[in-house]
């Protein structure tokens, strides 16, 4: 009886959730960063990180969303199932993201270094910054759009992310703030990133955007064949 009441208590639920987040965090770390940590002096683990980081983040979003929906309380199996399910799309998106990031950083560097030379450089500089802002808004929404709307093409995901990113600009801005805050925390205190630094912002973002996405995703859910 006492065990039952403890399991129903708020403290238990909070601790249970924290444990889940820590496990998910460790899963992402093991999949994406373990080799990078072990072979820190080599360059090739970076490829593994690049190939697994975004899919594992998407998978984490999906696991947390399913738990919030009350669909699936497990962690390990759903994580790897979703990892495989979204892998191809995520990898393609990773390539697009990395290519865009490279192009944008390159443009910014060029425009910034020639800033005082001509008006075109000034316009290009601010234009690049604007595009970066838009790209950040899209990137923040991308995993959420992928896990909420299944069966769309890559281009449609990108377009929908842009729409969702600017639909509720305050929420998107808050999301960016959360991610930024956790990135800074992770840089200053790497141990925080190791324990909960990835899964906690993912949980917060899912929770914040849950209402907005769940109505649409429920309505447009892909029928189980």
């Amino acid at each position: 009886m006492r065990k039952d009441s403890f399991m129903k208590s708020g403290i238990y639920r909070i601790l249970d959730y924290v444990a889940r987040l820590v496990i998910l965090n460790v899963l992402v770390l093991i999949i994406s960063f373990s080799l990078l940590i072990v072979f820190s002096d080599q360059w090739w683990p970076l490829i593994i990180t690049g190939l697994t980081f975004f899919p594992s983040i998407v998978s984490m979003f999906k696991v947390i969303k399913d738990y919030e929906d009350g669909k699936n309380p497990s962690i390990f199996k759903p994580f790897f199932v979703n990892f495989g399910k979204y892998y191809v799309k995520s990898i393609i998106l990773t390539v697009i993201i990395l290519a865009s990031a490279f192009l944008l950083v390159n443009s910014l560097t060029v425009f910034a270094s020639n800033y005082n030379e001509s008006v075109a450089n000034i316009i290009g500089y601010y234009l690049t910054i604007s595009v970066i802002i838009v790209a950040v808004f899209v990137l923040i929404q991308l995993p959420l759009v992928i896990v909420n709307f299944e069966g769309l093409s890559i281009i449609q995901y990108l377009k929908l992310s842009a729409v969702m990113g600017f639909k509720d600009i305050v929420l998107s801005f808050l999301t960016i703030v959360i991610v930024g805050a956790f990135l800074i925390t992770a840089l200053v205190y790497p141990i925080v990133a190791g324990v909960i630094g990835i899964s906690l912002p993912v949980y917060l973002i899912t929770k914040m955007t849950y209402k907005r996405y769940s109505l649409l995703s429920d309505k447009h859910a892909l029928e189980e064949e």
Partner: peptide
């Protein structure tokens, strides 16, 4: 076996477009 596997490439594309348009219309 899902129904999607029996569809042709064009049909899948049309289905995707339809879903996307429905979401956008809702938005």
């Amino acid at each position: 076996m899902t129904r999607n596997n029996t569809l042709t490439k064009e049909q899948k594309k049309a289905l995707r477009k339809e879903r996307y348009d429905a979401i956008m219309a809702d938005l």
